[in-house]
Amino acid sequence: MSMMLAWSITTAQILLGCAMACAAFRILRGPRAQDRVVGFDSLYVNAMLLVLTLGIRTGTTLYFEAALMIALLGFVSTVALAKFLLRGEVIE
């Protein structure tokens, strides 16, 4: 039974890695700045899910805190980037 769980965790990690690759491609390729920000938004969510999966793999709840931090900082940076695109400055 634990064998199946181990395989499913590996599968999930591979899938999430592919998802991160797609998002990274969108960041690199663009074509415009807002596309890159959407890619970044997707990238940090995928990274957060990957960290959660890593937590399941190792069986420690410490990774949960790391995931929470990624989610918080990712949100703040997406908003800052989007605000910069909107106005040209982050804090007016």
Binding site: M1, M4, I9, A12, Q13, L15, A23, R26, V38, V45
Partner: peptide, 29 residues
């Protein structure tokens, strides 16, 4: 030491969630 039912549920939700996330990111592509 995990029993069968939680292990199966974890596996299903994990792979399902990862697959949905991948579909979303493929849409980005």
């Amino acid at each position: 030491e995990l029993s069968a039912l939680p292990a199966v549920l974890t596996a299903v939700f994990l792979v399902g969630g990862a697959a949905i996330t991948l579909i979303g990111s493929l849409g980005l592509l």
